[in-house]
Design a protein around this nucleic acid. Structure first.
Lengths: 304, 304
DNA sequence: TTGCTTCCATATCTTTTTCGTATAGGATGG
DNA sequence: CCATCCTATACGAAAAAGATATGGAAGCAA
């Protein structure tokens, strides 16, 4: 079976014009090189060189094979380099699925990661937590970014720092203070994020309202943060969302106010298929994501 | 060092989806295949598969490498096939240098050879015997076709059948008989082939004239048969050339007559660089050339 | 859950291949 | 004609690849 080693040997001999010099260049002794060449010629069934007294000269088939061999070796090197680049995360594609309320993290992370690894391209998918998990299971995405809680049986869950919820009101609404209490929401129609499948933030917010002694008036539930916020901008009602959600989708016509008497935190996480090999680009991206999330959490504390 | 064998193994595993089946297909045991794969992954520094319970699944770098590897293996096969084709003479290029007075042989040989090996292309060079030898020495041509005698020290000489000389006269010249004697040339201005370097047919014809008791009146000597014959066609004089020479360059305005009282033969030969590997196409071509020359000689005898 | 099956990984031994040293043979040039 | 340079062959040593035996994890069925 023809071997890469034989190709390298052959190419070197062809370029050096003699076996002895080629052997030196290859850091092997001369006899084995003679043998390898002989073996290659036998495998091909074709003499590759005319053995002249002072120099080996390529035959017609030899010339043709030299060109091919050189090309093949170069392509092999390329292939190896590319594989390593993909592994190192300096090239390749990263597929990420993200719930909309976490796009702020994602956008920041992509921006920072792109500075480190400009050759990595992204495929983004959007959906609610359930569908993101589904995509991950189907291997359509490498990383999912979702809101907790989730059923974590099949995934590695990398928790991101929790963040506070904020109240979002139509800009024209009058409020006495520059901040809100949970009790304020008792009188307003509420628009809330709600997963299509399973329990999540929605249930948590309802729970919090009840803890503050009122049953919320939920006008609309919707799984998509941008739709929700645009409805708020239309003046339909107020909503309670994680802070980062409005950091990205800060539409005109809404105002964002702190809720001072609630310690609810929205938790997000990056999730991974446990059984799957993760390219280094993905691992690096996760680091970046965590850094971004941590900084966002820090800023939040400062504001407070 | 990455090995073709490893690539084949890897591709097979990738296609079979599991090591055990791949090992069966490759006719080796399973453990060595596991080891080879492991080794390849170590050399690349990248895991190529996710080991899942029931099937091996390619990682992102693995997918990329699979495509490259498959392509490389195909190209290697192509390269080997091409080299063998060139060796077998079913492809490649054949460079031939030929003196003009032998082009008849060459044309016939090329025509027949082309039927056998339509993928072989030709590079033709023309010159006198000396320059053809020179081209062969410089490896600009694979085969030379020349008139004897030559200095045969450095070449393998493959003699072609000898052929008779014929007299060529301007068409308008009146001759009593349908054939000629050497003596007839005593009265005519002669145009003769003459090598630029060294001795050859010219000297032989002069010698033959003297043997017949006259000193030829050489009006013009010239190394190129077509020029010579066109001068004859212009009525400038007569010439004596090998029969095959006029067989190809039968210009209007000349007539060809047998010389009945001379047994001079013109000898041609194919010559080869002794120290050089000869592709099979060249060897096959030589066979065809000899067949063609032999048949030409046969026809000549019949005519006679 | 238990037991069975399937498949990958590891360990060890055997065989094959490859390499290095020593040496012979052929061509070239002074 | 000898010295030199290069290639080819012979043979022992080292390295690599393969086969067999075995262990362990995961799926599947009872």
């Amino acid at each position: 079976m023809i071997d890469v080693k034989q190709l390298k040997y052959f190419v070197t001999i062809a370029e050096e014009g003699q076996i002895t010099k080629a052997a030196q260049k290859l850091h092997i002794a001369q006899p084995p090189l003679s043998q390898q060449l002989k073996q290659l010629e036998e495998e091909l069934g074709v003499p590759l060189f005319d053995r002249k007294a002072k120099k080996m000269e390529l035959t017609a088939p030899g010339k043709a094979f030299y060109e091919k061999a050189k090309r093949l070796l170069a392509q092999l090197d390329d292939a190896v380099a590319e594989v390593k680049e993909i592994e190192e995360g300096t090239a390749g594609t990263l597929s990420i699925g993200c719930v909309k309320s976490c796009f702020y993290y994602l956008a920041q992370a992509i921006r920072h990661f792109h500075e480190q690894a400009p050759n990595v391209t992204f495929h983004l998918r959007e959906g609610d937590t359930f569908s993101i998990c589904q995509l991950l299971y189907e291997r359509r995405i490498d990383i999912g970014i979702v809101r907790l809680p989730i059923d974590s049986a099949d995934y590695d869950v990398i928790r991101l720092p929790g963040e506070r919820y904020v109240g979002v009101l139509p800009a024209q609404w009058k409020t006495g203070q520059p901040s809100l209490c949970m009790r304020d929401f008792a009188d307003w129609p509420l628009l809330l994020l709600h997963r299509v499948h399973g329990a999540g933030q929605y249930e948590r917010v309802i729970e919090e309202c009840r803890r503050h002694g009122f049953e919320p008036n939920v006008l609309c539930e919707c799984p998509d943060a941008t739709i929700l916020l645009s409805l708020v901008a239309q003046g339909l009602g107020a909503t309670i969302v994680p802070q980062s959600t409005v950091a990205l989708f800060r539409l005109p016509g809404i105002k964002v106010l702190e809720i001072i008497d609630s310690s609810m935190t929205a938790e997000a996480a990056a999730i991974l298929d446990r059984q799957r090999y993760l390219p280094k680009s993905a691992r690096t991206f996760l680091d970046v994501l965590q850094t971004v999330a941590a900084r966002a959490a820090g800023e939040q504390h400062e504001e407070r």
